[in-house]
Amino acid sequence: MAIDKYLRERFFPHMWCAGCGHGTVLNALVRAIETMGMSRNEIVMVSGIGCSSRITGYVDVHTLHTLHGRALAFATGVKLSKPELNVIVPMGDGDALAIGGNHFIHAARRNIAITALVMNNRIYGMTGGQYSPLSGCEVLAATAPYTTIDPSFDVVALSVAAGATFVARCTTYHVKEMIDILRQAILHEGFSVVEILSPCPTYFGRSNKLGDAAEMLRGFKEDTVPVGSAAKQKNPELIERGIFVQKEKPEYCAAYEKIMQKARSAAGETI
């Protein structure tokens, strides 16, 4: 099987719970990389802390498992230092948008060519099911025994506003769509964000009585529609999937190249 070479098979079976969507993201991600025929030596995966962040351990590329919330800051150092590398940053929703929220918007603002994945399971799984910035209102969680009163971010709107030049959303039910979106996100020359709705049957599903993993995936099927669909106008509660933004803007490392040229000519130096 062609994807085997991208996996560190000695660490399988992996550490995620039965039915956890993060395994499906890993599955789709290695397939997306495989279709592009990229060398494993030119890919760096940088992650933070949380269930999602353990994904780096399973992929046979250069992997950097860092601090909670800081993956994009580490990744910025890797990418600016060696722009020829493909840098992919899988994050959880708390990792990316609570503790890492500032790094997220600033990486987007710079439009540095990094692929940011927000694996949105609406919960902190690793620490035992506390609510996250994407839990939304009126859900039950370990730290919300009387339901949450915190609204959630709209990751797509936030990313667009912050300056990301590729913004998409998909789910672990719609896997072929996810593989295609991940491929386009990785190829994009700029900061790309892919929000992936990923079920946590163990904590979010159980505390909110959403059924097993398959039931939760059925929910993704029923609650989402392709972007621009007429159904969304009839029912605003539906969540849109697909590519929302895909545009060209000067990429950060390319812009820095020009600064180096400017600096050299200003200094009248040849080196």
């Binding site: 994807i3 079976p13 995620w16 993060h22 395994g23 599955n27 039910y173 993993a213």
Partner: peptide
Amino acid sequence: EQCALRCPDLAITMQIAERED
């Protein structure tokens, strides 16, 4: 291929005749 693509455990592998890989 939906089962293999969606499997969160990456436990399912299948080969399809049209693709000789």
